[in-house]
């Protein structure tokens, strides 16, 4: 890993332990300015712990971490002054109004009221909350609260926005609106650092990502690279009526694809040409309850690299 002053975050052998539990187990990564960087992995993979160390609210157990060229151990407040944080759980002042939330948060950064007022107008517009500015936060929908949390995190014009599971718990419509807003930020050049266990979110938003599992990094690259390197262009998914049907079919699936991966409820066949593989499967006398040909995704990459699915 070459060390240039441009890196926004640089970690080497970064480790976090809670008592005997190792949450983050010696990871290396580098986040550049202007990119959207993701940590993809299931719950408990160590993503949030990594994020809290980057956000300088959780001390590093061992290894090295530089954020904005500084050391979180000594420069926490100075680093945090230049970051925006969107935590996994909402931490809004729910008894106050939407605009009060922005004002109070801006004051934590020592911004003047005039500056906060100007920025708040813009941010409320961005978060589509202008009409709700004088309303209390409590009755707002989950999606609105998330957007307010993002607006709040932007009040100090941060050099990077850290988002921990930004759309977890939102309905699909609210999620898509949020993705659209984050995509806009990305186009404006804001560095995004996010954790997610949604493969789709990682594919939509991330220029580059690492796949995390059990505290370690299992793979790194652009979504397209990762799929090309570890999965195949297409995947044939076979569903069976029962687990015994599935087991019975396995011997007859050998050789129909580059690799055949049996899961609890389905079988995945990795192939360059899904239709040809599906035909070969039928020729071998295998008739599953359902058969689906789809593109290879990060979900497949995760499975190949860790032997587990993201939902595990």
């Amino acid at each position: 890993m070459a060390s240039s002053p441009e890196a926004l975050v640089e970690a080497r052998s970064l480790t976090k332990r809670f008592g005997r539990h190792v949450a983050v187990d010696g990871v290396d990564f580098r986040i550049e300015r202007g990119e959207a960087f993701g940590f993809l992995g299931p719950n408990g993979a160590g993503k949030s712990s990594t994020m809290r160390m980057i956000g300088c609210v959780s001390p590093v157990t061992s290894g090295e971490l530089r954020v904005l060229g500084m050391d979180p151990a000594g420069d926490g407040p100075r680093i945090r002054a230049r970051l925006g944080v969107v935590p996994q759980e909402d931490t809004l002042d729910t008894e106050l109004t939407v605009s009060d939330n922005l004002t109070i948060y801006g004051r934590y950064f020592g911004l003047s009221r005039t500056v906060i007022r100007e920025r708040a107008d813009e941010l409320l517009e961005f978060a589509k909350l202008t009409e709700r500015r004088h309303d209390r936060v409590d009755p707002l929908s989950g999606g609105m609260k998330r957007r307010l949390t993002i607006a709040r995190a932007l009040i100090n014009r941060p050099e990077a926005l850290l988002l921990d599971e930004p759309t977890t718990g939102l309905d699909p419509q609210a999620r898509h609106l949020l993705w659209e807003r984050l995509y806009r930020l990305k186009q404006e050049g804001v560095t995004l650092v996010l954790t997610t266990h949604y493969m789709e979110e990682a594919e939509q938003l991330c220029d580059r990502l690492v796949i995390m599992d059990r505290g370690r990094i299992a793979g790194e690259g652009t979504p397209r690279d990762l799929v090309a390197r570890h999965a195949t262009r297409e995947v044939v998914e076979l569903r069976f009526r029962s687990a015994s049907d599935l087991r019975a079919a396995l011997p007859r699936l050998a050789g129909v694809a580059e690799r055949v991966e049996p899961l609890a409820d389905r079988v995945l066949a990795y192939t360059g040409d899904g239709d040809a593989t599906a035909a070969a499967i039928a020729d071998n006398g295998v008739h599953p309850a359902a058969i689906l040909v789809r593109r290879g995704t990060l979900e497949d990459v995760f499975l190949v690299l860790t032997g587990r699915t993201l939902e595990d």
Partner: peptide, 14 residues
Amino acid sequence: WARTFHAMVATPLR
């Protein structure tokens, strides 16, 4: 319950 102190320490406040 509201985790508002966690929001504070994500800023320059310690």
